[in-house]
Simulated scan of single mutants.
Amino acid sequence: MCVMRVVVATDRIGDLDSAGVGSALAAGWQRTAPWAELAVVPMGESARGFGGAAAALLGVEAMLLAAEGGAVVAADRATLVISVEQQVDHRAWVPLGSSVELGRMVAEQIREHRPRHLVIDVGGVAAQDGGAGFLHGLGARADAPLDEGVTGLRGITDVDLSPVHHLLAEVDDITVIVPDAEAEIPLLGLRGTTSLRGSAARQEPGSVLENQDMLDADAALEAFAAAVDPEAAGRPGAGACGVAFALLALGADVGGGPRWCGDRAGIERTLAHADVVLTGTDLFDFASRGGGVVQHMAHLSEVALRPCIAAAGAVVIGAREMRSMGIESAYAVDELAGERQPMVGADDLVELGARIARTWDR
């Protein structure tokens, strides 16, 4: 008998995190084909399940800091992961929005855990201050308010980062996790975060935002960048989520949640020994293309020359479009749901896993 080896790496579905989804699908698959070998790899996108997936990969319990708006903390002996998981419009105009609470939370967790590797998911932060508030929360001082949003940065000329460097003295590396759509956004200029947010805001009904407001905000960010690290301001992703610049100025690398999870799990080595890859998401439609986890797994599967299939609460995408993005086929919990996302529990996913196995593991 040929033993099929399956890698299960999905997004969260319904109220289940990635590890829970993967375990349920794997249990269903083995109910149909008990001889199959399955490897569950937790995956998560920025601001949407990344913290839980990271905790599973670190082998620790995720801690929810409810007071911080849905922040998830996971830490082992060497790595500290902090993920702000709330829905945020990264094109919203929020000139008074500050990232200071993130900075304070990170400072507190660094003092508690003393990590060598620091991973910060900023996808759920509502600010466009370039991370000025974040630096203030870590202890930075300046000749202008750092915790009053981009508006407070007007006229800034000096930022003292020595307290920040002291706090981070034992940290070897920093990774900032952002949504894929934000990963290349610059800090300044016509394609920068201020321009993108301003253009989106001006199209809103009743908007009173003027060109001068956008110019003033961009000028304030430029002055802040000049006082902190002009070179970091030019790096791709410096404008990500309105706050990433400060982390890049501290030496951080920008990355995506699925890629970090995959690298942590050594998923490329696992795929080399797999026969099929099973990924998944809540709603598999053409607009979202399944989301970042599905897209990342489709790409890795293509590179590894392995077929990739998808499980979802609902599937609203044609076979041709699906295959164009590297998904062989997709299976829905509710075949008649349309664009309505059905309620999905663990039992539903066990049944779905068993049904998929009847097609693929015969």
Rank of each mutant, 00 (worst) to 15 (best):
R77V: 10
V119A: 06
F134R: 01
M105H: 13
A26C: 10
F134S: 02
R114E: 09
S98I: 01
V84T: 14
A54N: 00
V119N: 07
Q87A: 12
Q87E: 15
D89G: 03
E85K: 10
S99I: 01
L38T: 14
V72G: 04
F50Y: 14
G70P: 07
I110E: 06
I110W: 03
A53H: 09
V40I: 11
A53V: 13
A54M: 01
G137I: 04
G133H: 09
G49A: 08
E101G: 02
D121Q: 04
A24H: 07
D76A: 01
R77P: 05
V94Y: 00
Q87T: 11
D76P: 03
S46P: 13
E37Y: 08
V94K: 01
P115E: 09
A39F: 08
A24D: 05
A47P: 10
E108F: 05
A27T: 15
L65W: 07
G49F: 10
R111P: 02
L138G: 08
L138V: 09
V73S: 05
G139C: 09
A66C: 02
V81G: 04
G97Y: 06
V40S: 13
G70R: 05
Q109C: 03
P34Q: 11
G124Y: 00
E85C: 06
G52Y: 15
P42S: 09
A92Y: 15
I110K: 05
F134W: 03
V122A: 12
R141N: 02
L96V: 10
H90K: 14
I120C: 01
H90D: 14
L25K: 11
G69T: 12
A126F: 03
V88N: 08
R141T: 08
L102T: 12
S23C: 03
G123A: 09
H113P: 01
G139E: 08
F50V: 09
G52H: 15
R91Y: 14
P95E: 00
A140C: 06
P34I: 12
S23R: 15
D129F: 03
H117W: 13
A71Y: 00
R77E: 15
A142V: 08
V60H: 13
V106H: 13
A132V: 05
S98C: 03
V81Q: 03
V119D: 08
V122E: 09
A55H: 11
G51P: 08
F50G: 02
G51Q: 03
G52A: 11
D121T: 08
E85G: 04
A56E: 09
L102K: 07
A142D: 12
A127C: 12
V122N: 11
G137H: 06
P42A: 10
Q109E: 14
L102I: 13
A53C: 13
V41G: 14
V73L: 07
V88I: 14
L118R: 06
A74L: 04
G130W: 00
L65S: 04
L25I: 12
H90I: 14
T79R: 13
A24N: 07
G22H: 07
S46I: 10
Q30P: 01
H117M: 02
R141I: 01
S23P: 00
A39R: 15
G69E: 05
R111F: 01
A33D: 11
E112S: 10
L135N: 12
